[in-house]
Structures are given as C-alpha cells and as structure tokens.
C-alpha cells in the first residue's frame, strides 16, 4: 500500500449511492460533497479532522468486515461501502452527544445536535453548567499549525485535560489574532476589544494595541502586527498604518499619481 497521493480516483458507495472521489479525501468530505450530512465538531475544512469528538461515526464495510469508524479521518478507498444513518450509527451518535452535552451544556453547537438527534438528557450531571469546551483541539491546532504562535496547548490528561496557556497564566506567545475564536465550533473562546487592549479572556491574556502611525487610532494588537511583520517581510511598512488609512493612503497615492501623470502629459 502506498501513501495516498490525493490524485488517484476511487469509487465507493455512501448510503447506497456510488461516488467517485480522490483517495486523499476523507469519507466525511466525500459525503458532504454529495449533500449527505454527517455531524462533526472536531473537523474543519482548513485543519481536517482530528478523530476526537466521535460524533461523525459511520458504519463501513471494507475487506468484508463491517465496523464503525470516524468518518472525519477515514480515507475514501476503492470499493468501500459507507452507511451514515443506520440504527447502530444513530445509537452511537446519541451516546456521544449525550456525553458532550454533559461536558459542554452551554455550547450551542452541542445543544443543536442534541435537538436534532433527540437527545434530551446529558450523560451525567454537568459539572460546569456554563461549560462550552468539548476538547476538540481545534484551537490548539489553529494556534500551533496555522498561526504558529504556540500560545495554547492541551494540559493534563484524561478527565483533567484542558486547553490553555501554561499555568493558565497570561501568555507571552498569544498574538491576539482571534483565529482560535473563529475556528472554535462551540463558541468557547471569548475575546473583548477594550479601549486599552484586546482582552483574550479565555487565555487570560491582554494585548496592547498598535496605534496607526497616520491617524493615531488603535487597529490591531501590537503583537499581531509584529507577528505579521515577521511572516510577511515584504509589505512590512504597510503594517504601520491601520486598514482605513491604508485604503485612504492608497487612494491618495493613486490620486497623486494620476495628477502627476496628467501634469507630465501636459508637458
């Protein structure tokens, strides 16, 4: 068996419908392209799946064996049969959702899933009625793999596992980019923009603003500007000004340029 290149095409069936897919795609992605809805919380198109939340379980038949797999990480393969809606799948999905409902009762995405699948009771009395984190790890992957800031990570293990900064203290690595908030499926990450700083409340971190060198207004956390400067050295000077001034500045430059052009053509 060779490592999937993603280029090869394979034929498989999902809920009885035949489909052609790239072998590098996951069953979840193929199903979604076909309009078959499989719930998934730890999957994001940019990051892929983590196989962690387990609500995307489906039944497959491969090499003559029928079993349950997590569709967000299971690769499309030639001849694969996938069943996304069997009684077994629904029972398993409900069991997992009821556990998530106990872990994160305040998470809207979990509440919606519970409603859709008719789960009325959490699997146990929730310890934190305000809990929103399901430990899917999307913030960790975003911060480490996409942004490469490395501010948050998993801490402890098992029951004690959390996501957070070391000692839950203010992070020197968080750049306040807010990407984790964008990708979090359960709305667990809270960020508040105040006059003096951007407060990333979930990570206990306050970030001072960068002031626009032109208009003097705050526009981005200074650390984020610094991070961008390092990763985009070419346009570094553009980062000195806020987006509005940048637009205005470009417009002015443009106007100035056209005036100059007009003048030179008159000569």
């Amino acid at each position: 068996m060779s490592q999937d290149s993603g280029e090869k095409l394979v034929k498989l069936t999902i809920d009885g419908r035949e489909v052609q897919a790239r072998s590098g795609d996951t069953v979840l992605e193929v199903a979604r392209q076909m309009g078959i809805e499989i719930p998934a919380l730890c999957y994001h198109p940019v990051l892929g799946g983590a196989g962690a939340c387990r609500v995307c379980m489906v039944e497959i038949v491969a090499w003559g064996r029928r079993r349950m797999v997590a569709s967000c990480v299971y690769p499309a393969r030639e001849g694969l049969e996938v069943y996304t809606n069997t009684q077994k799948v629904l029972t398993a999905r409900r069991a997992v959702i009821s556990m998530l409902l106990a872990k994160a009762p305040a998470a809207k995405a979990v509440q919606e899933l519970a409603e859709r699948y008719g789960v009325t009771e959490p699997a146990y009395e929730p310890k934190d009625p305000q809990g929103r984190c399901i430990l899917c790890g999307q913030c960790v992957r975003t911060c480490n793999e996409l942004i490469k800031a490395g501010a948050v990570y998993f801490t402890y293990r098992g029951q004690e596992r959390k996501v957070g900064t070391p000692y839950d203290a203010e992070s020197a690595q968080c750049i306040g980019c807010g990407a984790c908030q964008n990708l979090c499926p359960t709305g667990n990450i809270r960020i508040r923009d105040k006059a003096e700083c951007r407060a990333v409340l979930t990570w206990n971190t306050d970030l001072a603003w960068q002031m626009c060198s032109r208009c003097g207004q705050r526009y981005l956390p200074a650390r984020l500007v610094e991070h961008l400067r390092k990763s985009l050295p070419a346009g570094a000077e553009l980062l000195e000004v806020c987006p509005r001034c940048r637009r205005e500045g470009t417009a002015e430059d443009f106007a100035r340029a056209s005036v100059t052009a007009e003048q030179s053509s008159k000569l």
């Binding site: 501010a151 990570y153 402890y156 900064t165 690595q173």
Partner: peptide
C-alpha cells in the same frame, strides 16, 4: 525551539 505551552503540556500529561 518549541512553544512554552507545549513543554508545559508535556510536563502535565
């Protein structure tokens, strides 16, 4: 050259 958070994560795992 790894994030502090990763070292802390390991130390607690």
């Amino acid at each position: 050259e790894v994030p502090f958070s990763q070292a802390y994560g390991l130390a607690t795992f």
